[in-house]
Structures are given as C-alpha cells and as structure tokens.
Nucleic acid binder design. Structure first.
Lengths: 190, 190
DNA sequence: TTCATTTAATAACAAATGTTATCGCCTGCC
DNA sequence: GGCAGGCGATAACATTTGTTATTAAATGAA
C-alpha cells in the first residue's frame, strides 16, 4: 500500500519502516461509521480501496460535505488536530480497505519530521491546498447555479458522479434529490 | 500600531524593531483598489483603521467573498503565497489607514522565525484557523437559508452589517440586493 | 429465486428567489 | 442650497427550487 510513496520521502529505510509499522489495515463493509458526531477523533484513515463520505445531521437532514477515494487520507480535521468533539460523521459508501493510524503516532512522527525542512514545507503546502480546495468549492456556491455546479462536478470530479449514490451528491451540491433529478434530465435533453 | 502585539512575540527588541521597520504606513480613500485581478500579489496589508473587501467579477457581476476590519491582515492568499495571478480584487470600503509589507520581507522574516517553535506553531495554527473559517462559512451555504445566514451575520459579525453597504453584503450571502431587502423587512415585521 | 428496502424519476403544487422597473432618500460635490 | 449619482425599498412578474406523493427500477438479504 505505501511502497508507491516510498521515494517521495527523504527518510532512512529504518525510519520509514518504523512509521509504516504504525498503520493498521482493516476491511469494512459499506455504510460503516468510522467516526461519530460528538466523538473526539483519534484515528486518521488512508483509503486503499473504496470510498468515504463526511456528513452531518442538520434538523434531521443528512448533509454530505465531502467525498474521499483511493489514496486520500480522511479525518475530521478540527477534531483530529484540535481535539474538539467532531461536528461530522465519517462513513464508508462502498465496502472499503483502509489503513488507520493513532493520533499519538501521528504526533510523534510529525514532531520528528518537522526537523526535515522538505517535509515541513510539504506539510504546510498540504494545509494550504486543503484551504484552497475549500475556497474553490465555496466560490462555486456564490457564483454558480446548482446546474452549473453539477456540470463542474462531472468535469472535475467524475469519480463522485460515477461512484456515489445520487442523494448524497444532491446535498453536497446544496439541492434536493428531486431537483438534482431535474438537473440531470435537462442535461440529457440538450 | 504594532506595540500592542509586542509582548505576544518571543523576539529580542532588536529583531522586533527590524521586523516592524519593514512595514509602510499609507492612508487611502474609500474605493481604492489595493490589488487587481490577474496581478501577482506582492504586498500584505494590515488594517489600522478602515475596512476592506475582497471581490471578484463573474459574468459582469460584482461578487464579494470576504470582509476585513481593524487589526486584520489581508492579501490574496493564493497569489501572495504561490505567486499565482490573483483571482480577486482587493478594495477599501471606507477611507483607511493601512500598513503594508513586501512579500520578500515576509519571506525573510518567516525563514528566520521558523526556528522558533512557538512562532512556527502559531503560524500553522493561523493557517488552520483560516481553513476552519472557510469551512464554517461554506457549511452555512449547504445548511442554511439566506435569511438564516443573514441572521447569523448580525449575531456573529455585527461589524459587517453596521459598516458595509448592503449590496456588498447581498453577494456575500449569495443573494440579490432585492432579496436581501426582503429578508430585512421580514425580520422587522416579527 | 422472492421479498423488502433503497434509490431514482416524475408530476403537481407551494414557496423561495431572481429580474426589471420605479421611487425616494441620502451623500458628496460645486 | 441645489444637483447628480449612489443606495436601498418596494412592487409585479418570471424563474428556480422545494415539498409531497406516486411509481418504477435496482439492490440486497433470506
């Protein structure tokens, strides 16, 4: 699972193996809850196979805010980093193969790895990237119609459209399932 | 301007004065453009007095994405950090007193300051905070109606409602000026 | 397989929001 | 003080989106 990343990291083999050894492999069915709302997140997940969504409950409605696929890492970032109760649920969509690591191990690794400027810069870069992604998604809510957001989704994140049930996509785009259905049928007419 | 922050930073007086000396004070009227779309941002601004908005043009519409007030720092973050052409304009709303610093000076300071773990951690913390703010604002677009978003704005960021012209607030909330007017008059009826 | 459950499409109607136009009030400027 | 232009309220109408209900298709479990 992790071998393909090996040459991206300027570490001794010894250190590398020590870090990799902290990860645990699990296989879980679809609709498995990995983190409950209110819980303090103690695990970071990496997806080997499958797909995960982050969602929250608002007045009884199930609202999805993010999707994750193979090779992405997933956590409730506020909860994991700041030890706040998680505002969100994390749940598998498909049967999945995951690797998880304890927060304590992540902290230890980060503490050691900070001394390596290349890695430190890459971590800061990842943080920025996450922020930019949020900004981009957020902008689309100010400037685009739901139909345009769906069109962008098809173009930019086809995995979501192909692998995720439609009612999750609807709330992700900020519309009802009925309206997403209408958007799709209008697209087909053209 | 910066004296009130002095005791927050574990630096020698000499270093502190060197860093503060990099800032330049300017006074500008309302509606002054500080950064054009497409330009690469080379300045970071700190607001001593006044108020600033970040906006972009979408199909001829003026869409505001952020507001900033006293003691906040402002830049087109993607452009300033990554040297991309800025996707946004930055403009004063009120006549303002600003302090600006060159990107090169920021880079130099950051390079030196990274060696101080307290500061480094605080910088990373600020990055996270920015991300959390975006996430929160973004969530409100999925879960709340425009009327609810306006209500939250009154409660959580009263400065915006008090000091910013209404047509800027409208696009910030993702509605037309006409609809924001309706929202306000409905609130008064209750 | 069969049956129950989940998921998606559609229709009819209701509510929210956008568009265009008009009016009045300020504010800054001469 | 008077005037022009910017700003905000409101009305009438158009369009978009939500709600509820129904049906059909797909999926999963026994």
């Amino acid at each position: 699972m992790f071998d393909k990343f090996r040459n991206n990291f300027p570490l001794t083999d010894e250190k590398w193996n020590e870090y990799i050894g902290c990860f645990n492999r699990i296989e879980v069915p679809a609709k498995t809850t990995l983190l409950e709302e209110g819980e303090i997140s103690k695990k970071l997940f990496v997806i080997e196979k499958g797909c995960i969504r982050v969602w929250f409950n608002h007045n009884g409605k199930d609202l999805t805010s993010q999707f994750f696929f193979e090779n992405q890492s997933v956590s409730s970032i506020e909860s994991f980093i700041k030890k706040f109760p998680s505002p969100v649920f994390i749940e598998t969509i498909e049967p999945s193969i995951l690797w998880w690591i304890h927060k304590e191990d992540v902290d230890t690794i980060l503490e050691e790895v900070k001394e390596i400027p290349e890695l430190r810069d890459r971590l800061i870069d990842m943080l920025f990237q996450r922020t930019f992604d949020y900004m981009k998604h957020f902008f689309s809510f100010i400037k685009d119609t739901p139909a345009q957001r769906y069109q962008s989704l098809i173009e930019e994140k086809p995995q979501i459209v192909q692998r995720v049930p439609q009612h999750y996509i609807a709330s992700y785009l900020g519309v009802t399932t009925v309206h997403l259905s209408r958007i799709k049928s209008k697209l087909l007419q053209k």
